[in-house]
Design a protein around this nucleic acid. Structure first.
Lengths: 202, 202
DNA sequence: ACCAAGTTGGTAGTGACTATCATGAGGGTA
DNA sequence: TACCCTCATGATAGTCACTACCAACTTGGT
C-alpha cells in the first residue's frame, strides 16, 4: 500500500529520516543521550524540530526503532512446526542475527546497541522491545493458545531465549562487534539450555 | 545508619510517603497512568507537588520502587556455593516470592504489578529493574569474574531465570494473585530448564 | 530558650511532546 | 500546460515531568 510510491517524495522522506537518525546517534554517542536535546538533533540534521518528531515519535525512537521482529517472526513460521521450542526460537534468532550483521549499516547497528546498553532510559525501552518481540514469537509459533499450560510454557521458553539473546548482544557490544554475533548467541543459548538443546554444532 | 532515628520525624516521613504512594497507585489504576498528573497525585495526597518529588524521584518510582534485589541477593549468598547456578538462583527467587506474597501489603504489590504490566513506560522500567536485579544476583553468586566464559555463563543463566520469573509474575497478575506465586515460578523454571533442574518437587 | 537539621512549600525555569494552522513542493488528471 | 490534491515541512502556543533555588516551619537535642 504505502510502499510502491517509491517516487521522489518517498525517497526524500526516507533520506531525511536516515539523516536525522545518523546525526542523532552521532550526537548521542559524542555528548551523551541526556545532554543532547531534540533541538540539537534538528539543528545538526538541518531540519526543524517538528520534522524530527514527524519521523520519530519519541527521542528514544531515534535510537531504538527497528523492525527486527518481523525478521525473526517469518523465520519462526518457516521452521518445522514439530521441533522443540527452544531450537525453533534459537535458530530463528541466530539466522536473523546472521542477516543483520552482514548488513551494510552494521556500524550504525553497533553504535545504537552501545547507546541502548549504556543509557538507562534506552536500556529500559530496549528491554520492552524485546518483550514485544517475545509476543511476536509466540504468535509466529502457531501453537494453540487455547491450552493455558502450553501457552505458559511457550512464554517461558521464548523469554528465556530472548534473555540469552540479550546476554549475547551485551557481550557483542562490549567487544565492539569484533566477535561473531550468531556464534555468541549460540553460546548463550547453550549456556542456558545445555549444549545439546540448541542444535547441531556449527 | 539512617534508620534508628525512628523518632516522630522519621515515622511521619514514612507515613506521608506511604500515603502518597497509596493515592498514586489508586489514581493510576482508576484513571490510567498517563491520564494522571503529578499534581493530581499531590492534591489527592494532600501535599504539595514538591513533596511528591522529594519522596519519589520520578513518576515511575511511584509504582516501581522496591528493594527486592537485596532480598534475593542475601538468599543467593546463603545458598550452597557449589550447586548448579540455575538451582541457586531459582531457589532464591522462589524463597523471596514466598516472603513477599505473605506480606501484609500484598494487595498493593499486586496492584503495582498490574500497572507495571499494562503501562508501557512502567513495563519498560520494570524490565530494566529486573536487569539491575540480574547484576545483583551475579554479584551475590561470588563467582570469579576473572574468567570471561564463566561470567558469560552466569549472565546467561541469571537472565534466563529472571525471564522465567517475569513470565510467572505476568501470569500471577493476570490471575489477580489467586494462584500461588512461588509455585508459578517453579513451573516457569521447569518449563525453561526441564523438570529436574529446579530442585526437589515441592 | 536556642540552635541545628530536616521537612515542606513557592517560583521560575528547561526540555520532551502535542495540537493546530499555514505553506510550499510533488504528482496525477483534464 | 494548467489545475487540484496530497503530503512533507515549518511556526506557535501549550501541557507536563522534572530541576534548581530560596523561604518558612517543625522537631530534637543542648
Amino acid at each position: 500500500m504505502t510502499d510502491q510510491h517509491s517516487t521522489l517524495r518517498a525517497r526524500r522522506r526516507a533520506q531525511t529520516r536516515r539523516t536525522i537518525q545518523a546525526h542523532a546517534v552521532r550526537l548521542f554517542s559524542e555528548r551523551g543521550y541526556d545532554a543532547t536535546t531534540m533541538n540539537d538533533v534538528a539543528e545538526a540534521a538541518g531540519v526543524s524540530p517538528m520534522t524530527v518528531y514527524r519521523h520519530f515519535a519519541t527521542k528514544e525512537d531515534l535510537v531504538l526503532v527497528d523492525q527486527h521482529a518481523e525478521l525473526v517472526a517469518e523465520r519462526i513460521v518457516a521452521s518445522p512446526a514439530g521441533g522443540p521450542l527452544v531450537r525453533r526460537i534459537g535458530g530463528a534468532l541466530i539466522d536473523a542475527a546472521t542477516a543483520l550483521t552482514g548488513d551494510a549499516d552494521r556500524q550504525l547497528l553497533l553504535a545504537r546497541l552501545q547507546l541502548m546498553i549504556s543509557t538507562p532510559a534506552l536500556r529500559a525501552r530496549h528491554l520492552d522491545n524485546q518483550y514485544a518481540l517475545q509476543q511476536a514469537i509466540i504468535g509466529a509459533l502457531g501453537d494453540d493458545a487455547t491450552d493455558p499450560d502450553t501457552a505458559f510454557q511457550a512464554q517461558a521458553a521464548a523469554s528465556a531465549c530472548l534473555a540469552a539473546l540479550h546476554t549475547a548482544l551485551v557481550r557483542w557490544a562490549e567487544d565492539d562487534g569484533r566477535t561473531d554475533l550468531p556464534e555468541l548467541i549460540g553460546k548463550a543459548l547453550a549456556a542456558v539450555f545445555g549444549d545439546d538443546a540448541v542444535g547441531p554444532v556449527r
